[in-house]
């Protein structure tokens, strides 16, 4: 058993790198885009908020695997954009994540008292400056619980990139057991353990950050 795992380790390490890369890059894309979507949905002029509502509806209403297929088989192969599976997966996870994160950020902004904006404007700040200096810093702090939930969801959902041929943890596991059918159970249990450890440590780290950056006296939980 240990020998099996020792033999598989280099391959699994390669897969793990890809899994972490997918997670981090798509979270960055999703967070940045999500912030823009949330801010424009609340402060944007007609018809921008409606376009964003539509965007959120669509990306939250269809399965990730369908998004992957549209991006990779549709846009990349059929239309000929020629993006590799890894990039397609980042865009799929990132654009879908943005739809969820926009919701997290929006409810965070909505929980900030209106007086904050009014006070900033009365100091002579422009609307943009008030959003950047007063609203966003508070929004980010209030979003940590929702965001950490999103983090673990994205981490687990990178496994679905298997379906468009990204060589992440799951696919490495599949390669290993196709060559050595006896390895199947230990290898996948080990992969499960890797995910489990990552999810648990991500939760622990983020809840530590949540406590650290909490605005004292402002213990508002953000509901998903």
């Amino acid at each position: 058993m240990l020998e099996i795992l020792a033999n598989s380790l280099p391959q699994l390490a390669e897969g793990l790198k890809t899994t972490i890369g997918l997670t981090v890059l798509s979270l960055i894309l999703g967070t940045i885009l999500g912030i823009f979507l949330a801010v424009i949905r609340i402060y944007g002029k007609f018809p921008l908020p409606y376009l964003i509502i539509f965007y959120e509806r669509v990306f939250r209403g269809i399965p990730l695997i369908v998004i992957f297929f549209l991006f990779y088989f549709g846009l990349s192969l059929q239309i000929g954009l020629n993006i590799d599976p890894f990039t397609a997966a980042i865009f799929g996870l990132g654009l879908r994540g943005a739809a969820y994160q926009a919701q997290i950020f929006r409810s965070a902004i909505n929980s900030i008292p209106e007086g904050q904006m009014v006070a900033a404007r009365s100091l002579g700040m422009s609307k943009l400056s008030a959003i950047r200096n007063i609203i966003l810093p508070q929004m980010l702090r209030l979003s940590v619980p929702g965001w950490s939930n999103e983090f673990t969801i994205v981490l687990k959902d990178t496994s679905i990139a298997f379906s468009i041929g990204v060589i992440e943890l799951m696919r490495q596991g599949r390669y290993i057991y196709v060559n050595n059918p006896d390895y199947v159970l230990p290898v996948f249990l080990f992969i499960a353990l890797i995910y489990f450890i990552m999810v648990i440590s991500a939760n622990k780290t983020l809840s530590y950050l949540e406590k650290k950056y909490k605005m004292s006296g402002f213990e508002i939980g953000v509901e998903r």
């Binding site: 687990k156 959902d157 990178t158 496994s159 679905i160 298997f162 799951m170 596991g173 599949r174 057991y177 059918p181 006896d182 199947v184 159970l185 996948f188 249990l189 992969i191 499960a192 995910y195 489990f196 999810v199 648990i200």
Partner: peptide
């Protein structure tokens, strides 16, 4: 609850479908 929530659904499906036959 923690183990199921801490691992991807796809891993769970792989274990049940591909790995269970080995036991």
């Amino acid at each position: 609850i923690e183990i199921i929530r801490g691992t991807p659904l796809l891993v769970q499906l792989f274990i049940i479908y591909f790995a269970f036959p080995s036991i």
